[in-house]
Design a protein around this nucleic acid. Structure first.
Lengths: 293, 293
DNA sequence: GGGAGTGCTTGACTAAAGTCAACGAATGTG
DNA sequence: CACATTCGTTGACTTTAGTCAAGCACTCCC
């Protein structure tokens, strides 16, 4: 790997965490320990369950409990038991708490404004675009893509999400019986590929054998929160790799007319539109691509 | 200002400091308090004065003193009085300290490598480019540009730097007597513009009146450490603003043939090459631009 | 209805970070 | 040469952050 890239990355890291991070962390801790501010911020306008806060902030239960107690004593937060389960509790901001968060927000915004101010319009646009690029790329980097057993719980979960989404998006709904049988998506005949972000599945795809030398890619799904970062392409290229490894030199796929982003992605990934190769009731476009020679 | 831009900035900030910052901070604090690691890192291969460390890390004198003492006890650092002044001390890494820093470095590199690994070559290049963009833009944002008295110490310091640089770069050297008289670069007749980064001057420029309605821009200098971030353009546009404010609708400037970046910049900033308007012995190209109508 | 398990709180600490003032040695200055 | 300054050190804290285990109150499930 390019050592220069690593060096630049680290330089950026130092610069950002020290120069910008310090600036923006300082505002958060205005007269209040950073831990408390973070909790306050995380509760947000809608309130949040204690358990939820704990996982989102990744802090010790006791520590969080004490922080919440302190915020409560300051009159910023109220804790009440969640209806239905008296063990759990939810935190909600009081009016005073909301004002406090708004002030926090205001200060944070002012710092950022101050940083953007001296830049020209193009400079600003350039900067913002670069930030989006970094977020997209690094997020993609934290997602792992790999083959799982098509009978596994995670595979079933992904397919359920996929089916639910299609049912929502297709005007005619979606019938789960159209899903590929698990037996076709494993071993020598096919593969089930899953994308995971911190262990939660955020995407999947299946490749199966149609006939000797010809595979079909199906059920490519990307979770709503993980779109527009290039995950679809990454799934696709892993599926193609799996196909090639099974001597499927040609892969085909079909798609529904409402899935415009998918159609775009297939085109951009080198898929060529072809005649209908099946009578899938949900298909309006058919594609193929040669994945090995 | 665009509220979306601020929102995106803040989102990036949260993402970066939480996701990436945490990752890369963790490596630093391997078995050693983060404060100590930071000091170790900051001392670096060349060693550093205690005072220097204090300003660079922005920590309390007592705190730093204790940290250094602890590092010394661990055999990672030696402190010796600076020759010439027995009050001050410098810190230097021992062989063991150097090994420790190298290990730290190695770990930090590995984390970054892990982040870059899953990306494609284009993805990686894209990411690195975006990081450079952000650094450049934000750095420029932290630099202030404004008018100072041409007799002030900071103005003289800038001009001295300018003259030194030209003397180094021009094959024929540079004679300081060619500098504009301070009286021409102030008040109604002209202006002295200085760019400062955390109070240290990193660039300057002068505008003076040549004849009614015609100004001349001279002595545009950008410190070596602050180049390629767009500071030259920013200085230039401030100088043009100052000219316009003095009813100088047309500004001219000349430049030496070896200053290729400057020539580029003038062209890119809308300057048009013209015939020689003076007999400056160091000039090979002459430009002009209309800055108000 | 009685265990097993869950969800949060409390107690009891430790480590790290950060602050403030007093101090002593060294160095400039009139 | 006395006096003010500068530089770093030390003592004596306080505040945050973070950890671990014990303990209730409640819920779930047989």
């Amino acid at each position: 790997m390019d050592e220069d890239a690593i060096e630049t990355f680290r330089k950026f890291n130092r610069f950002y965490t020290q120069t910008i991070g310090v600036l923006t962390d300082r505002y958060l801790g205005q007269g209040r320990p950073l831990g408390e501010s973070r909790v306050l911020f995380e509760i947000g306008a809608d309130g949040a369950g204690v358990r939820e806060l704990r996982t989102r902030l990744a802090v010790d239960a006791g520590y969080l409990s004490r922080t919440l107690r302190s915020l409560q004593d300051q009159g910023l937060v109220v804790l009440r038991p969640q209806p239905g389960d008296n063990r759990t509790r939810t935190a909600q901001l009081t009016a005073k708490g909301r004002r406090e968060v708004a002030a926090l927000d205001e200060r944070a915004g002012a710092v950022v404004r101050g940083l953007l101010e001296p830049l020209s319009a193009t400079g600003r646009a350039d900067l913002i675009k670069a930030m989006e690029t970094i977020r997209r790329r690094l997020r993609l980097a934290s997602i792992t893509v790999g083959v799982v057993d098509s009978h596994s719980a995670v595979a079933r979960e992904c397919l359920a999400n996929y089916a639910k989404e299609l049912d929502r998006r297709f005007p005619e709904g979606f019938d789960r019986r159209q899903l590929v049988a698990a037996g076709e998506a494993r071993g020598a005949r096919g593969a089930f590929v899953v994308a995971r972000e911190n262990d939660t599945p955020v995407g999947c795809g299946v490749v199966r054998t149609m006939e000797p030398g010809v595979g079909e890619i199906r059920h490519v799904w990307v979770a709503a929160g993980a779109r527009r970062i290039g995950l679809g392409r990454r799934l696709l290229s892993e599926l193609e790799r799996q196909a090639a490894a099974r001597d499927l030199a040609l892969v085909r796929l079909d798609t529904h007319v409402v899935l415009t982003e998918a159609i775009e992605m297939y085109r951009a990934s080198g898929y060529r539109e072809i005649e209908a190769y099946d009578d899938n009731p949900y298909a309006h476009h058919w594609f193929e691509k040669r994945v090995r020679d």
